[in-house]
Amino acid sequence: MSDQRWTKFTDCSSCKSCQMNVFKYRAYPRGMLIPQARCMQNTIYFLISGKVKVNSEEHPNTIFCSGEFILQPIGSRVEFQIIESCECILYLFERPLNICEDRFHNGEVLAANSYIQPVIMHVCAPLVLFLESMKRYLEDDMLCATFLQAKRSELVYILNCYYPLKELASFYAPIYRYSKSFEYFVMQNYLKVKDVESFAQLGGYSVPTFRRIFKETFGEPAYQWMIKKKCQDIHNDLTTTTQSISEICYKYGFESLANFSHFCRTNFGKSPRLIRNEMIENL
């Protein structure tokens, strides 16, 4: 049977409901090193093909292979070394989705009391079908928020129905432990605030206390860290997404394109348009 290819007739990239950070498809060549970086959201890595060496606190010098998946909690630092060329699907989320009250509560209790150890899960047959379809959808830019939310629910149902609760609790344990920390609060909310004062208020801290705890946790002043993160996120959006420059401008709270352009020239030495054009030329 020939591989019949279908044509997608809609373009959702300019829709307000389009989002690009729930599922991602990635392919990497053999020998590539993805340097250590902090996870900005809880992330499950489903390895469709290939072999990868992971180095993180949760998975120190661990090799996982095609047909396996791992979890890295928000704020964790992880490095990947591609041993064999690989393809993977990433699922990003803030906390596990609750689709069954009793099972969710029992899972939380088990996870809270679980000894945290490296957990590598194996992809079951229904999950294989799900990942194959997600790969195709992502290649076709099926990025509608409503559609991806439905696929998110489907994924959670598959995990809940085809994996034992005790195994899932061990898998999610790093999230439940980490979610009570100051670092988790920062990573979950830094995009929602404009300055240190509002950040402190959101967490119920006095500004001096917030500044002190922040520097003890992250090793640098809160304001400097927030500017650095803003630069990283903006540069990432300009070079790895199809969001328009206007969308990126207003996403990060700039009042005008002129202010956004000034920010980019000050921090990157280039206008946002030039950064975007250089990315396209290097493709």
Rank of each mutant, 00 (worst) to 15 (best):
Trp6Val: 04
Asn259Lys: 09
Leu165His: 00
Tyr205Leu: 03
Gly31Ala: 08
Met32Trp: 08
Pro35Cys: 01
Tyr163Lys: 00
Thr266Phe: 09
Leu168Cys: 02
Asn113Pro: 02
Tyr137Leu: 13
Ser206Cys: 04
Glu183Arg: 15
Glu139Met: 12
Cys100Tyr: 08
Tyr172Val: 06
Ile248His: 09
Ala258Gly: 06
Ser85His: 02
Glu84Phe: 05
Arg5Tyr: 00
Asn160Glu: 11
Glu278Ser: 05
Asp140Tyr: 14
Arg77Ala: 14
Lys230Ser: 05
Met142Asn: 11
Gly269Leu: 04
Pro96Trp: 03
Lys194His: 04
Trp225Glu: 05
Glu247Lys: 14
Leu127Trp: 03
Glu68Tyr: 03
His105Asn: 13
Asp102Pro: 01
Thr43Trp: 08
Ser261Ala: 07
Ser114Phe: 06
Lys8Gly: 04
Gly75Met: 05
Ser133Met: 10
Tyr157Met: 13
Asp11Glu: 03
Val156Asp: 12
Phe69Val: 00
His235Pro: 04
Phe268Val: 10
Lys230Val: 03
Phe104Leu: 00
Gly204Thr: 02
Glu197Asn: 12
Gln41Phe: 07
Asp141Trp: 08
Phe268His: 06
Ile70Trp: 01
Asp3His: 02
Lys53Trp: 06
Ile82Phe: 02
Ser244Asp: 14
Thr43Phe: 05
Cys88Ala: 05
Ile89Lys: 00
Arg152Lys: 15
Leu47Asp: 02
Gln224Asn: 11
Glu154Cys: 06
Ser256Asp: 06
Cys18Lys: 13
Tyr178Cys: 13
Ile227Glu: 07
Gly269Cys: 07
Tyr190Met: 07
Arg276Gln: 07
Pro208Ser: 05
Leu138Ile: 02
Asp141Arg: 09
His235Leu: 15
Gln243Val: 11
Glu167Cys: 08
Leu138Val: 01
Gln201Asn: 12
Cys15Trp: 13
Tyr172Lys: 01
His59Cys: 09
